[in-house]
Amino acid sequence: MAPDGPLVLPGETIDPSLVPSHPKNPLRLGPGLRHIPPTDIVPTVAGQLITNPVKNSMWIEYNSNRYIPSPNDLILAQILRSTTDAYLCLITPYSAPATLPHLAFEGATKKTRPQLAPGQLVYARITPASANRHMDPELECVSATTGKADGLGPIGVVGTTSGSGSGSTGPGCVFDISLGFARRLLMARSREDGGVGVLEMLGGEEGGGLAFETAVGRNGRVWVGSESARTVVLVGRALQETDRAGLGMEGQRRLVKKLVREMK
């Protein structure tokens, strides 16, 4: 992993010298930390403690197996069935379904709403309003402020007309990855901050300029689409192997080269 910070265990006391101090900004605690008044800050999970002195924030970087929905997360959901005004979607197996209103798509009205079949994949965002983790989450495929889809929406399946944008690349396939790896993939600078360069390498020089598109869900699923099935399999295997073995930059480069040679 790229970020460096001390490893902490749940309930450990955090060295006060590690807590950032800023003259003006209040201290912000991120995932995995809990404030016990008046003065204690206690980690609730095991992981790396990361601090950001500029934003005056601290959080714990960890890899867990169970996804807990939180607002504004981009996720890859699967339609279960349709009710009168919403689709019921599955974010993780064996958990309560999330609702995706029929009108939460770009330009959707009662007459033009997309018809989605059970089993179809949707790239969606968890609405900022569904902040309560004890309630079923709500999803949206459109930005509430701009009214644009911004790349969200159903992911195309051959033989249906509802695919928006991605329909041309065929069904693509979904691969399971760990939650920490999904987070690293979704970072704005995934190469520098997350230490993941495998996608760039596949599309760049090492992979011989493969053409593919991806949709990474924070729920530990990544969709890979391409016109050639060979590319989809290659990209999926590269992602899963990078995740499983925890490869660094050099390891990822070697893996990409090996896979490209193998699947020629």
């Binding site: 279960l80 064996y94 089993g119 179809q120 399946v157 051959v158 065929g170 399999v233």
Partner: peptide, 19 residues
Amino acid sequence: VDPSLNEKQFVTQALEENL
């Protein structure tokens, strides 16, 4: 839960291409 339509289609499509 059944796999998604995408996965179902892709697995069969890839097998047709010996993948």
